[in-house]
Design a protein around this nucleic acid. Structure first.
Length: 439
RNA sequence: GUGGAUGUAGUUCAAUCGGUAGAGCGCCAGAUUGUGGGUCUGGUUGUUGCGGGUUCAAGUCCCGUCAUCCACCCCA
């Protein structure tokens, strides 16, 4: 016998069992609905791109993590490591077939060859949504409401959207006459919550000197209500008028729409990525902050500058679906679950197979999801199968019921049967059964 | 990529100084061939992640490797 190949999967890549995959599809469905309700349209792009398309924008670290190889035609190709860069190429390629402002969403897998950790995989699903072609505060705020609506749709009431504005930070740095190593400064500040104020102070001192470091710390440590923080920012960085006006507009809109409590102005949010130029977001679950941001994004003033001379400003964010689901599983946010089907037609006698499929079709026509068991196994085994698969009802029909044009309906949760139900009335009996169980 | 921890039955976990790998739960069969959650009886479960090495003898010690988790880095 040939030696068996071990059925293993690569580090950071995963198989999904039906229950997990169903849950993922369910959440993606909820997100698609939410996005659609805001006028966002779906797109897709290839997983594989010419390497030159993907490099260049990301910067050194992402370049190292990229999956790259030569294809069968000798082309230098790479797998997308996020959805934003391919989207930039997409906009440059199709600008003339589209319209502005363009709102799109894109839920798909991305790949990074970095080290794994809980909620961090090498193959992961991102759910991106962006509004391209406008600088308006309305678009910034719309992304906030979208994040809020998306988490609400998923049944997560635990999410806090932290946001800040790059402009405030840049204004402070230029007032301090820091013009080199600003990326470094951003990265250090980004770690504030993680490593603490003292560690950040020390690192900043080495980068830009003690005095400038103190001013930066003063800005990023601000706490209080959103309005209070804006006031203090105005005092600390008087030259950041435009950015502050944008922040105020978003804060005011959030207050008016009643999501003030879930939107937190947090000057320590900077985002390491250097293409952000305006507002930036990170979303945390209050029950599990250590898993990191489950939805991040921000405003960029030129999305596709590498591929077209058209200037395309935009704002968007991305939900890390795998990380989010890992977090929800850990916190224990219940998912409605729901069985694979509503009812299972049992098999008592192989010669009745056509009748079993007729019963199934009748029930399906009444709107139920029905599965037919193929083998005439012991009833106990068929019940156990249904239970394992999460099917709540069984339809039992032997020769006697068949001649009476009836079936027996069994509630697999209460283990009680309703015998002699006319076939025409079976759907209703099952529907009642489903409702009592749900309540 | 760097540093650290972990890896034993389907699952949760045990195994002393290196000395025949065990238990609960689950699973299978029967009491009960058309109605399974109870009880009883019997039974099953292992390349100890994988590959080498040391040893009379390795789950245990050593080296390598794969995977998971933690930190750094980066990020969703």
């Amino acid at each position: 016998m040939a030696k068996l190949i071990e059925p293993r999967v690569l580090k950071g890549f995963r198989d999904f069992l039906p229950e997990q995959e169903a849950e993922r599809l369910r959440i993606m469905g909820l997100l698609a609905e939410t996005f659609g309700a805001h006028g966002f349209v779906p797109i897709d792009t290839p997983i594989l791109e010419y390497t030159e398309i993907l490099l260049g924008k990301g910067g050194g670290e992402t370049d190292k993590q990229i999956y790259r190889f030569e294809d069968q035609g000798g082309r230098d190709v790479a797998m997308r490591y996020d959805l934003t860069v391919p989207f930039a190429r997409y906009m440059a390629a199709h600008l003339h077939e589209l319209y502005l402002p363009f709102r799109r969403f894109h839920m798909a897998k991305a790949f990074r060859g970095e080290n794994t950790q809980r909620g961090r995989y090498r193959e992961f699903v991102q759910c991106d949504f962006d509004i391209v072609g406008t600088d308006a505060a309305s678009a910034d705020f719309e992304i906030v409401t979208m994040i809020d609506a998306a988490f609400a749709a998923m049944g997560v009431n635990d999410a806090r959207i932290h946001f800040a504005h790059r402009g405030v930070f840049n204004a402070l740095l230029s007032a301090l006459e820091v013009d080199s190593g600003t990326d470094e400064v951003l990265r250090v500040v980004d770690k504030l919550r993680k490593i603490g104020g003292q560690a950040v102070r020390e690192e900043l001192e080495g980068l830009i000197g003690a005095q400038a470091g103190e001013r930066v710390i003063a800005l990023v440590s601000l706490e209080g209500t959103n309005a209070q923080i804006v006031e203090r920012m105005r005092e600390l960085v008087p030259t950041a008028g435009e950015a502050l006006a944008r922040i105020e507009a978003v804060v005011a809109a959030a207050l008016e729409l009643g999501l003030g409590g879930r939107l937190v102005l947090d000057p320590s949010i900077t985002r390491g990525l250097d293409y952000y130029t305006g507002i930036v977001f990170e979303t945390f679950l209050t029950g599990l902050p250590e898993i990191g941001s489950v939805c991040s994004g921000g405003r960029y003033d030129d999305l596709a500058g590498l591929y077209t001379k058209e200037r395309l400003p935009g704002v968007g964010a991305s939900i890390g679906l795998d990380r989010l689901m890992a977090a929800l599983a850990e916190i224990g946010v219940p998912s409605p679950g729901g069985g694979a089907a509503d009812a299972l037609v049992l098999c008592l006698d192989e010669s009745l197979l056509a009748h079993y499929h007729l019963i199934a079709r009748t029930l399906r026509e009444a709107g139920l999801r029905v599965e037919v068991y193929p083998d005439p196994k012991k009833l106990a085994a068929q019940f156990a199968f249904a239970e394992k698969k999460g099917i709540p009802a069984a339809v039992i029909c032997g020769p006697q019921e068949r001649s009476a044009q009836a079936v027996n309906v069994r509630d697999l949760r209460s283990r009680s049967s309703t015998d002699g139900v006319p076939l025409a009335g079976a759907a209703e009996v099952i529907r009642d059964l489903l409702e009592t169980g749900a309540g």
